[in-house]
Design a protein around this nucleic acid. Structure first.
Lengths: 244, 244
DNA sequence: AGGGAATTTTGACACAGATCAAGCTATGGC
DNA sequence: GCCATAGCTTGATCTGTGTCAAAATTCCCT
């Protein structure tokens, strides 16, 4: 479960605010939580948890990007979630996971052991209520993504993806318009997220560059020059007009 | 939220067992719940709740099939959930819905007013725990569907859809192999569920009929003749072998 | 029962995106 | 700094599914 919420738990060591904990929780409860925590780091590409694994800990992403994905026997894979810093990995009341969690970039997690965390959830109504809210947020996001996967064109998928990055980069402040952004994924990972091939992702991205909608500093860093035309029809590159 | 769970609440009037309520709940609690309930009926095609509507009641589907869907401005729609009898509609802690709920067939709902239900959730830990479990089930199902929408072929989509119907028909008993089943949706609705067009759905269904994998009694009722080949490659209709 | 609308089937064709195949360009390790 | 490798771009071609159109079937209403 990836979690996005406006509550916070700032512990001394973590550079981000944890979003999985209810803002109303008392400091005592926070203390109990921070006591059971440890850090874990993963290199880009490393598996974090595997489908069917027993769930030994829940975690907040402190740095980097992790992905949730499902893979078919023949290798086709579909990403079903992206975990950015401050997002939460965990399934309240569950002891197994149903998908693979992989480090997309180098990732640092702030982990809480599963059992104590569950116990705390059981005794903290605010927290369990908050977790329910988070699960429903996830569900809404998943459904929005189903619309994208089932009905949008390649161009629209890319546009939605970039829009999501813009929105997520606005966390703690709305100044992100036209600022430099980073694609946190390779072309192949983006393709797996959007239900496309890496070639199609590359072509669409370069088309938007040619159309002056995006500007690339390097393969990863870019800027949105024209939000209005992000969702435009493709084609129509009519770079000369009528020849008479 | 569509809900599928092995707990039950059998109230005197409803022909099905409600799945949204924790099996451990006391009869007092059930009594409180049944007091605030009413029935509502909808004709096939009628909207039940609309995106953005205030959530006035939560409900169990008693009869018929309802769908959750999202629609784009230009009319493209994607179904994001199917509600079969005993499934639950509701978003614990939320007062709005994020998608359209429509009666796919004639539908009867057993409704509980939102406020009293929420109050009861707040004072019944078992219930809220159970609802969390349901939300996570929904999330797992949504992610499975994302894999289908993003990566499966038309044939595979149809096969998965039929498989889902078989599994769901097995509720309360596992005798469903090879029994007569019903497509609860029109070709167009199936298409909207699978991210296809109605023509493609029709063609695939008829191909599977020609290949003797499915047998149709009429447009809606059918039987699965060969589960093994449900997921087979298409093509290879080689209906005679080599001509020499 | 009959007529009209809705649904489904079927065909011909188009096209978005996949696939296959080079070549290119960054990047990290030595 | 240089090489090896992973990542990316670009081109040519193919194909599964969409689109458009029309006919066939079923359903439902009077």
């Amino acid at each position: 479960m990836a979690i996005l919420l406006d509550s916070h738990l700032q512990c001394s060591e973590c550079p981000i605010r944890h979003r999985a904990v209810c803002a109303k929780c008392s400091t005592d409860e926070l203390g109990e939580l921070t006591e059971i925590k440890t850090y874990r780091s993963f290199r880009a590409g490393e598996p974090i948890m595997w489908r069917g694994d027993p769930l030994e800990y829940v975690a907040s992403v402190v740095g980097g990007v992790a992905s949730l994905s499902k893979t078919m026997e023949d290798g086709r894979t579909q990403m079903v979630g992206l975990l950015l810093p401050s997002d939460f990995i965990g399934r309240p009341g569950r002891s197994e996971i149903e998908f693979d969690v992989t480090a997309a970039t180098d990732v640092t997690l702030c982990c809480f052991r599963h059992r104590p965390f569950e116990k705390m959830v059981g005794t903290t109504p605010h927290l369990s209520q908050r977790l329910m809210e988070l699960a429903l947020d996830e569900l809404d996001a998943a459904r929005e993504w189903m619309l994208l996967l089932g009905r949008k064109t390649a161009r629209e998928k890319i546009a939605s993806f970039i829009e999501m990055l813009v929105i997520r980069s606005n966390v703690d402040g709305d100044a992100a318009r036209s600022q430099m952004l980073e694609l946190p994924l390779t072309r192949e990972q983006i393709a797996n997220f959007l239900g496309l091939t890496l070639e199609t992702v590359s072509r669409q991205l370069n088309a938007m560059k040619k159309e002056q909608i995006l500007e690339f500093k390097d393969r990863r860093r870019f800027k949105v020059l024209d939000f209005g035309r992000l969702h435009d029809e493709t084609g129509d590159d009519s770079d000369g007009g009528v020849i008479y």
